[in-house]
Structures are given as structure tokens and as C-alpha cells.
Design a protein around this nucleic acid. Structure first.
Lengths: 105, 105
DNA sequence: TGACAGCATCAAAATATTTTGATATGTTAT
DNA sequence: ATAACATATCAAAATATTTTGATGCTGTCA
């Protein structure tokens, strides 16, 4: 059982910009740069694609991706000079499960 | 299907003070004032009990209970001059479910 | 009704987070 | 090695949230 921090994950998801990025990651396939590895889950996007989809500047995207990564919601993968981000579904499933066991009784 | 706002709920849970209150509500039974209604779920606590458990001043507790209530995480019940709060487990279950269906694929 | 208990609300202060532009770091291709 | 590109980091500014103390409102009980 992985250790997850409910408050940290909630806080990460509780920002509209970051939640939008999570939805993007869950629903988009990469279409630029080298293709990410086939990991069975979402294919992920690179920083530049997130910039394009959201219209945000680079440092802003970087900042939010770091928040998501540190919460364990997103996994990074360096591929050449690009960095891919994809959703860590294990964390989300643990999170959803723990919310229910800890708070619903 | 109730309309829930994932960002708002996440934000509400993403504050350490509020998450602590949620755990309190999930694990405590009221032991003061008139007993709350038997609603099948957690019995809830009144503002004064939350103050006692957390050591926080009244206006601070009030502020956070409002945030939790507005997110739909907590339901209020006025009983005499006391106000009881109890966890809204339906919202939490919908939340956990939607997190999984929207972000895990 | 008056006194008081419990909670809500408000404005100001304190604190935290987010955004931006500049600059640094790391990778690839020439 | 150098240039060019992708991303990270930093410090300052902008913005948002939380905390506090004061005050207001409502219900209870003498």
C-alpha cells in the first residue's frame, strides 16, 4: 500500500488550472515530439502540448506540473529534450478509496 | 445524479484544518447539547464541540464549516440554539466515483 | 422582556499561493 | 563546441485564502 497524502492530493486537484490539466491528460493523446512509451494508461502530453492546449506560458505550466507531480498525481518521463507527463491512476484510485474508507461510515 | 463540483470539493478537502474536521466528524459522536437526529450516518458535532476538539476559536470554526457546507461535504442541522454538522457521505461517494471515471482511463 | 449562550458575519491583518518575466539548466543537432 | 530548443527555477508582483477580534443575530430561559 503506497503512502498517500490526502490533503496534498486534494489541494492539488482543488485548483481549476490543475484540474483542467488533469482532464487534458486523461483525454488527450500526444501528437508532437517523440511518442511516449506505451504504458497501458493515458499516453501523456509534453509541456509544450499543455501550453498549446491551455494557452498558458511555459513557466506557469511548469509550476503546476510540479505541484501535480509532487502530489503523486502525475508521473514524469523524460524523452529526449521533451518531458512527458501522464496521470498516475494508482494514486487516484488509492485516493478515491481512502476518501471513502476514512470519511464515509 | 446530484451535481457536484470536483474542484470545489477538492479545494475544501485540501486544507489541513478542514480535513481534520472531516475526520473528527467521521469518527466522533456528539456528547453535548441536545442529541442530533438519528440519520443513519455519522451523528455529527456542534460548533462548540469542534472548537473543543480542535482548540480553534469560534469564528474560525464557523468559517471552515461554511466552506465545507458550501462544497456539499457537510450538512447543517439547527437544533435549538445549537447547530449540528454531519458529513454528507453521498457527496463523498459521488466525488470518489467521479474522480475515477473522469481521470482514470 | 432582559440576559445570556451559540453561531454568523465583517473588516483588517496575516499568510499562502499563483503568475510573470528573466535567467539557468539540460538535451539535441549541426 | 556552438546554436537552438524544451523545460526548470528564481525573485518580485499580483492575487487569494485564512485568521482574528469586534459586532450582530437568533433562540432559550429566567
Amino acid at each position: 500500500m503506497v503512502m498517500i497524502n490526502i490533503v496534498k492530493i486534494s489541494r492539488a486537484l482543488g485548483d481549476p488550472v490543475r484540474y483542467k490539466i488533469m482532464l487534458l491528460l486523461a483525454n488527450s493523446e500526444s501528437d508532437c515530439c517523440p511518442q511516449p512509451s506505451t504504458n497501458g494508461g493515458p499516453l501523456g502530453l509534453c509541456n509544450c502540448e499543455i501550453m498549446a492546449h491551455t494557452g498558458m506560458i511555459q513557466s506557469r505550466v511548469s509550476y503546476h506540473m510540479k505541484e501535480l507531480t509532487e502530489a503523486g498525481l502525475v508521473t514524469e518521463e523524460q524523452r529526449g529534450k521533451w518531458k512527458y507527463y501522464y496521470i498516475n491512476t494508482a494514486t487516484l484510485k488509492d485516493y478515491a478509496g481512502q476518501i471513502k474508507t476514512d470519511l464515509c461510515r
